[in-house]
Write a protein that binds this DNA or RNA. Structure first.
Lengths: 164, 164
DNA sequence: TGAAGATTGTTAACGACTGGAATAATTCTC
DNA sequence: GAGAATTATTCCAGTCGTTAACAATCTTCA
């Protein structure tokens, strides 16, 4: 094989390019890491939200992370089957299934957070504390300017025109 | 509705979180923008690569952007049907279909680049030139440290354990 | 009070997207 | 010249997520 290595010069280091490159890399690595505890990002997010607001309805937490009701069902089904969360009846409203973390769920969440922490460390490995702070500030500024996801992480598999 | 707005504090502004949030946002917006010229990111990438190295085989450029052969077929099929690229026989190797841009393909590519430029502008809108440079430097440092995609943009829909 | 209209959780059907295996035609290695 | 490797392609199967429809339950308000 000639192996002439096609020159990537065409794809210059524009900020947009770097951002998506690094961002996607970060997402993927995290997905790989979190898989070690049999979780995937959406599941981990739901777990976090349930912990943040126990007793809420499926749709309430679904709305908080921009997940449609029909999708929440499958997500919670899995979490419940694995004994990480419970669906309890809501005395006040019998349509609602209030979500609660089980002891096992708390453990899984703790492990997940530990992994998230390690991920953070690995990702910022080559950066000094000062660099890290600068980067956080700059990115936060972008988030504010762009009014990106009002506090909600987009996740990789939402929206339609993604395709990338 | 109670609308108590579940507190997102659980998802602190870790660098990893910010990076994927902003990165994914950047990818999505670009996908939306590029759709204006009937292209999607993978198609645009192929177009760029063909331009960067005309006459290469499908698999050669596929390898350069980490797209499996079977997928390249569909990608090139579409590009060819729309008259943006041509598959020409390779005199030296009759198995190979060398790819070339058509005049129309060049125009589409030019428009795509224009859009990419606008995207860059919009994305960095709130940043000063100095901020922008700092950000590029920091991100580039991360790319180098992490040995992220050896010059290749990952794209949003590759790898398996993505899921996010 | 009671009927119409919302809302919650679920299921089912459908479509978009991909990668991997198998195949035919060619080329390369010895 | 035989067998291994390579290129492009087709096919198939699996993953995922969205929309629509539905039953049960609540709310509204005449």
């Amino acid at each position: 094989m000639t192996e002439e290595r096609i020159n990537g010069d065409r794809a210059p280091s524009t900020l947009a390019f770097l951002l998506s490159q690094v961002g996607i890399h970060a997402s993927r690595r995290f997905a790989e890491r979190i898989a070690a505890v049999e979780l995937n990002p959406p599941l981990f997010r739901v777990l976090n939200l349930v912990d943040a607001a126990e007793g809420r309805s499926q749709q309430a937490i679904g709305a908080a992370i921009d997940v449609p009701p029909s999708r929440m069902v499958a997500l919670v089904d899995e979490l419940e089957q694995r004994g990480l969360v419970e669906r309890r009846p809501n005395p006040g409203d019998r349509r609602v299934r209030a979500l609660y973390l089980t002891a096992k769920g708390r453990k899984a969440l703790a492990r997940g957070r530990q992994i998230a922490h390690e991920h953070e460390e690995a990702l910022t490995h080559g950066l000094s504390a000062a660099d890290r702070k600068r980067l956080v500030d700059l990115l936060q500024k972008m988030v504010d300017e762009q009014a990106i996801g009002k506090g909600v992480h987009p996740g990789l598999s939402d929206a339609k025109p993604l395709r990338n």
